[in-house]
Amino acid sequence: GAAVITVASVVWYLLYVRPRVDREGAATDAVRRQVGRDALEQVEIAASQNAHEVLVALTKNVSEERERSLVAFAADVVRPDDGRVVAVRFEEVPDQVPLTEQVTVQSDADRSFERRVEALSEEFGVAVEADEIVSHDTKHAIVNLATDRGVDAVVAEHEPLRLRSRLFGDPVDWVVRHAPCDVLLVDNLGYGRPERVVLSGENGPYHPLAVGVAESVVAANDGQLSLWYPADATGSDEGARTIDDYQSELSRLLSVPVSAETVRTDGGRRSQPDLLVRRGSSDAVRDALFDDRPAFPSPGCTTVTVYPHESRRPGFVRRFLERATF
Rank of each mutant, 00 (worst) to 15 (best):
R193T: 11
V105Q: 11
V285C: 08
P299H: 02
G268Q: 10
A74L: 03
R278P: 07
R241T: 10
A284Q: 14
V17R: 12
Y191S: 01
P160L: 11
G201T: 13
V143K: 00
D152R: 03
R79Y: 10
D170Y: 04
A260F: 09
D244C: 08
A127N: 04
E64H: 14
V10E: 07
L275C: 06
G1K: 13
S311H: 10
F290C: 12
C301S: 07
D182L: 02
S311C: 05
R241H: 15
V304H: 00
V88Q: 01
F290T: 15
A119Q: 05
R115S: 14
R323N: 04
V97C: 00
R269Q: 12
L185Y: 02
V211Q: 12
D287G: 09
T234C: 12
S282R: 15
S282Y: 14
H207E: 14
V213E: 03
E67K: 12
L289E: 08
G1P: 15
V263Q: 03
G315F: 09
T303M: 09
W174P: 00
V143P: 00
P230C: 08
N61Y: 10
V198I: 11
D29K: 01
D237I: 08
G25I: 10
E215I: 01
L225T: 02
Q34P: 03
R162W: 08
H309N: 14
D266V: 11
H178T: 07
E249C: 12
L58R: 04
R196D: 15
F90Y: 15
S236W: 04
G267L: 07
V117S: 07
D187E: 12
P160H: 06
V213W: 01
T325R: 09
G125P: 14
P208S: 15
P80Y: 00
F124N: 05
E322C: 04
S200G: 09
F290G: 11
R269V: 05
E129A: 13
E24P: 04
A220M: 05
R33Q: 15
D81G: 05
R79S: 07
R23G: 07
A214D: 02
E24D: 13
V126W: 09
L254D: 02
R149W: 05
L254G: 01
S251F: 05
R115P: 00
P94C: 00
Q247G: 09
L199V: 04
E215P: 14
S282E: 15
V117L: 08
P171A: 07
S216W: 00
L289C: 09
T262K: 11
V277P: 01
L254A: 10
S281F: 11
S48A: 07
E91P: 01
D170R: 06
E238P: 03
G315V: 10
A324Y: 06
E132R: 14
D152A: 07
S281Y: 13
C181E: 04
W174A: 11
L120F: 10
P208W: 01
L99Q: 02
E202T: 09
F316L: 13
V35R: 02
Y191C: 01
V71R: 09
A141S: 06
D148L: 09
V175S: 01
V213P: 06
S271W: 02
R116E: 15
D38C: 07
V105T: 14
P80E: 03
R252W: 05
R286G: 13
R264M: 09
G239S: 03
D173Y: 00
L254M: 07
L40N: 12
L145P: 00
G1F: 15
D76C: 02
